[in-house]
Design a protein around this nucleic acid. Structure first.
Lengths: 338, 338
DNA sequence: TTTGGTAGATACACCGATATACTAACTCAC
DNA sequence: GTGAGTTAGTATATCGGTGTATCTACCAAA
């Protein structure tokens, strides 16, 4: 059916070994005379030879494939609600893989499947753990298992993992947002988040909000933290806050939408800041001020770390922390006098 | 390193052939006594044996992998501008692949690479052609090449392809939108589209707009077709239309945003309808009325067609056409008297 | 006793690429 | 002219799984 190395060898009047040397193995290709090499190359072109990657993967125990682990049923809401975010990250994964000669395979995993399970059939050279807030068991499992893997949105140091990891500087990003609002004159600032949503970063951002408010001499009480489910109730009363920072852009959009539905004007009555700052923010009315994290770069950086650790040496440093910036758009303004 | 069939065989006191029969080959497993089979299963569990899928793929010339072809550089704008749409479709691909026991690999293709190129290294059993508006050469190329493939958003019959294909009923969908607007009392309706954007469906939708307006006794002139780049100019004059149908939801959102920026009220001054109706429409203010196409189902259906055609028999019918529906939201209203 | 059938297992080749060991021819120094 | 070194190639084994052919008991029928 398909053209193999033997066919090429036969046509060039040599053995398969020579063909392999000429076409693939740069190192030992010097052991072939130029005349023979040229004959082989010609024969290869004539027959339209392409290496069988499955045969090679099998032999070399190296597949040049990276698996992106994601839970079944987790994919759907993730894609729907945060697809722009997901797309940017995927874009980085794809780009990084391509540049390193790897291909990227989506690997839906059933509940309870470990990275070692995913690796055990020899399909992948390494994995991307598209991290959710890990449960205690998951954390323990991750600490135990030992496969080439990179973690997104999780700090290796925090959990004592031996994996490279990529994260944005949540603290610094939230700091920019708080500074911006303070500078505009806001003093009553709230933080909106989603409980029960497995983003480990949500907690980090809430914490950062705390500390940066404190830095500006303001304390944060329970009333200054708004859970997404309580948003309607919260807005039903005329909120005492003049600005809200949301833990991601999807929630920021919802805050804006619900506030507008209640007759509030944004940004005049309420300033809103999101987190992520994909192009989604540009399509809202008003366009939403948002903390930018370089998702595509992070995705690409993650793959680079993974490729390095697949080569046998754990990268140093183990964590890559990307700085955030603030994209100021139309959803923030100085507070209008009460 | 890893546990192979030989290890299991040794522990169970049999040959690898028996292990293969017991664990994988249901058909010939009857040729093994139950006592032996049990010993083998136990040994397999004891050692934590997992089949080496690369070895099997190599041997069987079957990889159980489906490749989604997408051009480099095409991915980025696609993901950014239409990510919700893309995500829904991907979701269907993933689901369909998983259910059929296949895994899904993203396959960035360089310009000029054909599906046959993508198949020639034996990596995939079949392909998804994530179709763009095909150029004449591309069309010719697709007609010529012969690999297991399914086309999204392209009608096989239209181009005389021998591939199964999946598309939504654009004509019927646009019909629903026109009917809705007519029913509300609109008579001055425009269609907004993006020239140069390689969505083959854009043209189909424009055509459908034409015919459905005609059905209602209204003619469509050049002024009733708005190119996205001219949108600012168009809106600068007080538009004579009371409603606009956009060729997709991303453009619909832009129309709304730009109109609002010009001080128009939506839907009071202008009704807007998009196409796709993902959850993105829910997050806009006002929420956007949109023609729904069942992207996840379409993606899943596409994989099913592909799986069938990979088994050797071309599905009949070759085209799967999914009906659209209309999700009526806040961006459409009867026209306010002039 | 021979023949035949069957159940239950083994032996072996093969998929395609390639690392390794080996061979043959030729060159060159002593 | 012999041994060492070099160049250009061949022969072979192997990765892990599995289809096919084969082999060995053992029992039943002729």
């Amino acid at each position: 059916m398909s053209v193999t190395m033997r066919d090429v060898a036969a046509r060039a009047g040599v053995t398969p070994t020579v063909v392999s040397r000429v076409l693939h193995n740069k190192a030992t290709a010097i052991r072939v005379s130029e005349a023979t090499a040229e004959r082989v190359r010609q024969a290869s072109v004539d027959l339209g030879y392409r290496v069988n990657v499955m045969a090679r993967s099998f032999r070399d125990r190296q597949t040049m494939m990276i698996g992106v682990l994601h839970g079944i049923g987790f994919a759907r809401p993730l894609l729907n609600k945060n697809s722009r975010y997901f797309a940017a990250l995927m874009d980085g994964f794809i780009e990084g893989s391509f540049e390193n000669g790897y291909s990227l395979t989506l690997c839906p995993t059933l509940l309870g499947q470990t990275p070692e399970d995913a690796m055990s059939d020899g399909r992948f050279d390494g994995l991307v753990w598209y991290s959710t807030l890990p449960s205690d068991e998951t954390r323990e499992m991750l600490r135990k298992c030992s496969v080439p893997m990179v973690l997104i949105h999780t700090r290796a140091s925090e959990y004592d993992y031996r994996y490279p990891s990529v994260i944005c500087n949540n603290d610094q990003g939230i700091g920019l947002a708080v500074d911006h609002l303070i500078e505009l004159g806001h003093r009553k600032i709230a933080f909106a988040f989603e409980a029960g949503i497995p983003f480990s970063e949500s907690a980090l951002r809430a914490e950062a909000f705390h500390s940066h408010m404190l830095r500006h001499g303001m304390s944060v009480g329970p009333c200054d933290l708004i859970e997404a489910n309580d948003l309607d109730d919260y807005l039903a009363f005329r909120p005492r806050h003049t600005a809200i920072i949301a833990h991601n852009e999807a929630l920021g959009a919802i805050v804006m939408q619900k506030a507008i539905a209640r007759g509030m004007r944004i940004p005049q009555d309420l300033s809103v800041i999101g987190f992520d700052s994909t192009s989604f923010c540009e399509e809202l009315t008003p366009k939403m001020t948002s903390i930018y994290q370089p998702l595509a770069e992070m995705g690409q950086g993650a793959i680079n770390l993974l490729v390095q650790s697949m080569s046998g040496t754990l990268p140093d440093p183990l964590e890559l922390v990307y700085p955030c910036s603030l994209d100021i758009r139309g959803s923030t303004l100085h507070p209008i006098g009460e």
